[in-house]
Design a protein around this nucleic acid. Sequence first.
DNA 1: TCAGAAGTATGCAAGCTTCAAATATTTCAG
DNA 2: CTGAAATATTTGAAGCTTGCATACTTCTGA
Lengths: 142, 142
Amino acid sequence: MTTPEEPPAVAARNLCGMVNGLAQRIADHLRERAVALGLTAPQATALREMTGPMTMRELSERMGCEPSNATFVIDKLEGLGLVERHAHPSDRRAKHLVLTAEGAATRERLLELLAQDTPLAVLSPEQQYVLYGILKQALTGS
Amino acid sequence: MTTPEEPPAVAARNLCGMVNGLAQRIADHLRERAVALGLTAPQATALREMTGPMTMRELSERMGCEPSNATFVIDKLEGLGLVERHAHPSDRRAKHLVLTAEGAATRERLLELLAQDTPLAVLSPEQQYVLYGILKQALTGS
DNA sequence: TCAGAAGTATGCAAGCTTCAAATATTTCAG
DNA sequence: CTGAAATATTTGAAGCTTGCATACTTCTGA
């Protein structure tokens, strides 16, 4: 019954579960570092994605959530004094999210913590590069 | 400034985000199929993991969630008549989760739907096998 | 034996997420 | 220029998830 010449098919059955498992491990890693800074995981995610001023919609897309969820999370970060909602320079419908000085400092500390002991650190540079190529193809569909 | 001889380091920076992105795409795929059967995504996840009779704890571990969350989801599936809570044969602390006939039929339809148009289908069998090896190492840490 | 440690499931409170609807603004066809 | 359609954000309701507390059962070791 064993078919040594066809291992890919067997392996593929659990691939989705393995991707989810790895994503969950990454999420746990993030949550751990977030609480060390007094943040929740979603708050840390938002902070991590705040590479610069952006709209609510752009943030929600970067976070991979609904805009109304971004509203909820930004409410918290604004309450913590880490983010401010400014008027958008060219579109009065939109808000311009900007980090406060404390928000920028917290973000820097967060990025440092996130860079430590990544769940992917057990992979060699070569493996990481191969993984990058495969993920890129899976995500772009090309 | 470009360093053609060192692409892995550059690539590695976004690896976590790409893994999360792929996991989200898999989750969206699941949700889409779930609603087609009148289920929510968590309910479909539970049904998918019900490969046979098991305890609440085992189900929660397979689902990657807290036991109290499994209680919530199983309450729903029990209300839909797809799962039943039986007495565990050897441990009176535990419940033995069992699919009803309708539950088993729904699960079969779900598995068929999930096998169609997987987000990983764009990868060649060879790529899937390489991905399997890398994910395995990342998950086991070996 | 039996007292305490550990395991299994559930209830509850709080927070997170999504969805649908509402408001305000912008864009664009005609 | 005007009104329809599209876009940005927010609100409220409903569902999902977690963490902790609780009740009960099983296991362990003196």
